[in-house]
C-alpha cells in the first residue's frame, strides 16, 4: 500500500475495528479512510465492486471475514474475476486479491469451519495461495498484490497467533508457484499446506526419533502448483502422504495424487496416502471436532503405513 496508491483494502470491520482478527491493525491510521474501507455485510456486492474497480486500474484487496462467507460472492469471483481477461480477448485484466481465513477454527461448528481451496483452485484464471509461515505470508501477499491476475489468498484462523521471523526488506517477495521444502528427508514425503505444515513438521520430528527421515514439501500456492518439486521429492523418497484440512473428495490432495500417478508412477513403492478432514460437516463438540481434523498422530500413522512399518 505504501508502494502503490492504487492498492486499497475493503471488507467487513477492516478499518475502525482494525480487522475481526486484527489483521489490518494500524492500516486505517496510516492510510486513511479512502484506502481502508469498512464495508456493509454484502459479500456479493463488495466482491463485484472490487472486480469492477480492478477492470479500470485499481488493485483492490478484498477481505472476507472468513472464506465461509466468500460463498456468497462466488458468482463474482468465478464468473467475473476469473473469466474477464479471457472473454474480453485479453482487454481487461483483473489485478485483485481476495483474502481472509480459510480452514478449521475452534469449535464454531459447520458453517464457520471449512476449507474451500479446492473450489477456487478448480478454475483457470484464478491463482490460489496458502501460506504456512509468517515469512511466506509476507512474501506471498506482496506477490499476490503485485500480480495482474485475481488471487485467492487463504490464511488460517488458528495460525493468526503463531509468530515467526519475517524479513525486514520492504520488497521481500516470494514468487507464486514455487514450493518450499520445509524439512529435508529421504524415507517419505509429506505434502502439506497451510495449518497442516506445522502438524507435518511435528510428525516428522516424532518419526525422526524412530529413525524415519521425512521430507515436508509445502507447495505454498495451489494454483499454479509446483508439481515439479513434489515429483522430485517423490523420486527421492518413493513414498507420499498428503495432508489437508479440506474434505478428500474432489480435493487438492486428489489432484496432487493423480499428478504423482501420471508422472512418477514407477517411483512409488506404496500407494499415495491422504489425510483429510472427515467426510462430514464440522461438528461443534470438541471430541468430534478433533476426530474430524488431521492431527500429528494421524500423520505419523499414515507415514508408518506407506513405509509398511
Amino acid at each position: 500500500m505504501q508502494r502503490d496508491e492504487n492498492v486499497f483494502l475493503l471488507g467487513e470491520e477492516v478499518a475502525a475495528y482494525q480487522g475481526a482478527y486484527k489483521v489490518s491493525k494500524g492500516l486505517l491510521e496510516e492510510f486513511g479512510e479512502k484506502r481502508v474501507i469498512d464495508s456493509p455485510i454484502t459479500e456479493l456486492g463488495f466482491a463485484g465492486l472490487g472486480v469492477g474497480a480492478a477492470m479500470v486500474g485499481l488493485r483492490p484487496v478484498i477481505e472476507f471475514m472468513t472464506f465461509n462467507f466468500s460463498i456468497l460472492a462466488t458468482d463474482q469471483i468465478v464468473n467475473s474475476a476469473a473469466k474477464m481477461l479471457y472473454m474480453s480477448g485479453g482487454q481487461f485484466k483483473i489485478p485483485i486479491v481476495f483474502r481472509g481465513p480459510n480452514g478449521s477454527a475452534y469449535q464454531v461448528s459447520s458453517q464457520h469451519s471449512q476449507a474451500l481451496e479446492s473450489w477456487y483452485a478448480h478454475f483457470p484464471g484464478l491463482k490460489v495461495v496458502m501460506p504456512s509461515t509468517a515469512a511466506d505470508a509476507k512474501g506471498l501477499l506482496k506477490s499476490a498484490i503485485r500480480d495482474d491476475d485475481p488471487v485467492i489468498f487463504m490464511e488460517q484462523e488458528r495460525m493468526y497467533g503463531m509468530k515467526g521471523e519475517v524479513p525486514d526488506d520492504p520488497d521481500f517477495t516470494i514468487p507464486l508457484g514455487v514450493a518450499d521444502i520445509k524439512r529435508e528427508g529421504k524415507d517419505a514425503t509429506i505434502v502439506a499446506r497451510s495449518l497442516t505444515v506445522p502438524l507435518a513438521l511435528k510428525a516428522a520430528e516424532e518419526l525422526e526419533k524412530e529413525g524415519v527421515s521425512v521430507e515436508v514439501v509445502d507447495p505454498r500456492t495451489i494454483r499454479p502448483l509446483d508439481i515439479d518439486t513434489i515429483i522430485r521429492s517423490v523420486q527421492k523418497t518413493n513414498r507420499v502422504v498428503i495432508v489437508e484440512e479440506s474434505h478428500a473428495f474432489c480435493g487438492v490432495g486428489a489432484e496432487i495424487s493423480a499428478q504423482i500417478m501420471e508422472r512418477a508412477f514407477d517411483y512409488l513403492d506404496a500407494p499415495v496416502k491422504r489425510i483429510s478432514s472427515a467426510d462430514a460437516p464440522m461438528p461443534y463438540a470438541k471430541n468430534l471436532e478433533q476426530l474430524a481434523l488431521p492431527d500429528v498422530a494421524k500423520i505419523v500413522a499414515a507415514v508408518r503405513e506407506v513405509l509398511y512399518l
Binding site: G48, L49, V51, G52, D75
Partner: peptide
C-alpha cells in the same frame, strides 16, 4: 466494459467502476 452473462452480475461491477472513478 462488456456484456455480462449472469443476470444482474454487471451491476456490482459497474458500481466498482464508479468507485474507481471517484477514488481516482
Amino acid at each position: 466494459l462488456g456484456g455480462h452473462g449472469i443476470v444482474g452480475g454487471q451491476i456490482p461491477l459497474a458500481t466498482g467502476v464508479a468507485f474507481a472513478a471517484k477514488y481516482k
